[in-house]
Design a protein around this nucleic acid. Structure first.
Lengths: 207, 207
DNA sequence: ACCTGAACACCGTTCAAGT
DNA sequence: ACCTGAACACCGTTCAAGT
């Protein structure tokens, strides 16, 4: 057994049954040992999740940054693929939102995004703070959008906001009523691209 | 006993001992009954958290929107106060990130933010999508920043990214090395304001 | 020295049975 | 009809005791 082995089993169980089933006890059973043994390789559940994310990020293919290329489109594409990668595992996204990942593959991702921003002549300070914001946006978008099957009962619940918006009385919430048609428009893909584009625009804006 | 009563007790326990202690069993004990009784008033834990957030948002004082006022500064201030409100309860922020809140006070907040954006002549579509993005940013910033005491052991862990960034070898991660000084600069307040300002800039940018 | 069984101290949710 | 005790099916983490 090794740390890598534990993480590999954890990823397999997550892919097959979701993060909810990735418990220390389940992993221990899978590895034919007691739960205490895992604490030799990982400090706690949060650290395990971090290691899992890093392994997932390794699968991402990151563009080689070239000055003058269409850095904007490349950056948006990279961020979309990050979000989509995590989309299948919203609970993992939720988990890594709190314990910020810091594995080697995640650092590589930060480095690539920074490279793209700098290639686009975004000022250093804006780029440095922006990379954080862009990744946080990617992770929280994935965390928010629950995958369809992970929480079967969520169907009724998760659209509670949508229902509330549609039914919002225009007397009490005039502005919501005013933008009602737009607020729920667009599919997930469109909104995702739009969010990243908006932040990038903000980073480029001279203030 | 009533739904309001349950939520009120839940808020008290959260304020005194943190969301971690707000369990169905603990709440039931507090109300001198069995845990099953709570399910008469709330569907599940997630719904309870949603109701708690709505009550918290009610405490926020929201500006009356006036055309021509400094909508930008008002909006940033409102968003900062949202973030700060949730800052004390990062676990609640994490919870509501997935089950999007839709209570009356939260709708009021959406309406106010929309009003400010529209007062600033942000196009309807941009405003409608933007309000979502701004609130998500506020909630996830709160979720990310763990309050100091809630996870006492986090001190060593939470700055893992910071340590990794500082120690990132410039050969492997040239861009991180290049912006090293900026990436960790600024305090929480500065970065929070900067994030909101950046998104608002992006929303105003004509594309 | 390294590993782990068993225990500690809990969970959310359901449902049969009581009032 | 409304409410709830007790049970079901689990958790993460620790530590004393074994190899």
């Amino acid at each position: 057994m090794s740390r890598e082995g534990v993480v590999a089993v954890a990823l397999r169980v997550m892919r097959e049954e979701g993060l909810e089933r990735v418990t220390m006890r389940r992993l221990a059973a899978e590895l034919d040992t007691g739960p205490a043994s895992l604490y030799v390789y990982v400090r706690n559940t949060a650290e395990l999740h971090g290691a899992m994310l890093d392994e997932l990020v390794a699968e991402l293919d990151q563009p080689a940054v070239q000055q003058g290329e269409d850095w904007r489109e490349q950056l948006i594409r990279l961020l979309c693929s990050c979000t989509e990668l995590l989309f299948a595992y919203p609970s993992l996204a939720r988990s890594v939102l709190v314990l910020r990942p810091s594995g080697p593959h995640y650092l590589r991702l930060i480095d690539t995004i920074l490279g793209l921003l700098l290639a686009g002549d975004v000022p250093i300070r804006q780029a440095a703070w922006g990379v954080d914001m862009l990744l946080q946006q990617a992770i929280s978008m994935a965390a928010e959008q629950g995958s369809r099957d992970e929480a079967a009962d969520a169907e009724g619940e998760e659209r509670a906001l949508a229902v509330a918006v549609i039914e919002a009385p225009s007397g009490t919430y005039p502005n919501i009523a005013h933008v009602r048609d737009e607020i729920l428009s667009g599919d997930h893909e469109q909104r995702m691209r739009w969010c990243f584009a908006t932040i990038i625009d903000g980073l480029c804006a001279t203030r």
